[in-house]
């Protein structure tokens, strides 16, 4: 019983152990003077800084602000990206015309275009959300096209033999078959969205965690800065756990 539990949880336990081990190694390297503590503060100092950033810097409200921007931008990317992907799938001309451009969009460092967005949307959360959305759009479009196009031909033939209408074919065969690939796209997209949101918060010094990290860094509060980064990681973990739940709920049995 205990043994099977250990075996089943082995990857997670191993992950935690590896993390703990690398933290200890860093602690030793820094305290031993091998790594400069003004570049990387010792993990124990970062841990101590948690209390300070929570109490003094209101980091939880900032997490909330970043999370809200993330939810809006991430969901908008899904709601817009999936239909665009579906339309591109249906028109091979548009698809061939657009796919490379969208791929380029996915690879472009959109964060650097922040002055343009500032002019368009002002120094407000709107800018942050729109930029996150734009960066998160491409992977969803591309993976939606890919997912729909990789539907097994025999399943489409089953649909044809049952005389399904085009809309039945889409909703009952193509879309469910593409879902796992679409979710890969969403995961990629949300990574981009979070990077962009925190990055733009940092750059325009507005909003949630990104701004706080900016402030702490300017104050040379390195343990605080790293503590802030830990909170970004936590927000991202939260989103990915939630996404995994939704995925498992939408497609049991796979």
């Amino acid at each position: 019983m205990a043994e099977t539990f250990l075996r089943r949880r082995a990857p997670e336990l191993f992950g935690v152990a590896a993390l703990a081990a690398s933290v200890l190694v860093f602690e030793a390297l820094i305290r031993g003077g091998v790594v400069n503590r003004y570049i990387i503060p010792p993990p124990s100092d970062i841990l101590l800084a948690f209390e300070r950033v929570i109490v003094e810097e209101n980091i939880l409200t900032r997490c909330r602000d970043t999370a809200i921007e993330m939810i809006i931008a991430g969901c908008a990317a899904v709601l817009v990206g999936v239909p665009i992907g579906a339309l591109l799938y249906r028109s091979s001309l548009w698809r061939r015309a657009m796919e490379d451009w969208i791929g380029a969009l996915a690879a472009a460092p959109i964060v650097l275009a922040f002055p343009l967005f500032l002019v368009l949307f002002g120094r407000s959360p709107k800018t942050i959300i729109v930029m996150g959305f734009v960066h998160g759009l491409a992977p969803i479009i591309l993976k939606t096209v890919e997912g729909l196009a990789s539907t097994r031909p025999v399943l489409i033939n089953v649909g044809r033999s049952l005389k399904m209408t085009p809309s039945q074919m889409f909703w009952k065969i193509l879309f469910p078959s593409a879902l796992p690939v679409i979710f890969t796209g969403i995961r990629l997209s949300w990574t981009f969205v979070l990077i962009t949101i925190v990055g733009v918060e940092y750059l325009i010094n507005l909003g949630g965690l990104g701004q706080l990290i900016n402030e702490l860094a300017e104050r040379y509060d390195l343990p605080g800065t790293y503590a802030g980064i830990c909170f970004v990681v936590m927000v991202s973990v939260l989103f990915f756990v939630a996404l995994e739940r939704v995925e498992a709920w939408l497609q049991p049995g796979r």
Binding site: V154, L155, N157, V158, K163, P176, L179, G253, R254
Partner: peptide, 21 residues
């Protein structure tokens, strides 16, 4: 010249829907 309701087809490749029980 098009699928006929009187004909039911079973395909050579595996053709169940993996997302359905």
């Amino acid at each position: 010249s098009a699928p006929h309701p009187a004909v039911g087809m079973v395909f050579q490749e595996e053709s169940t829907f993996p997302w359905r029980t």
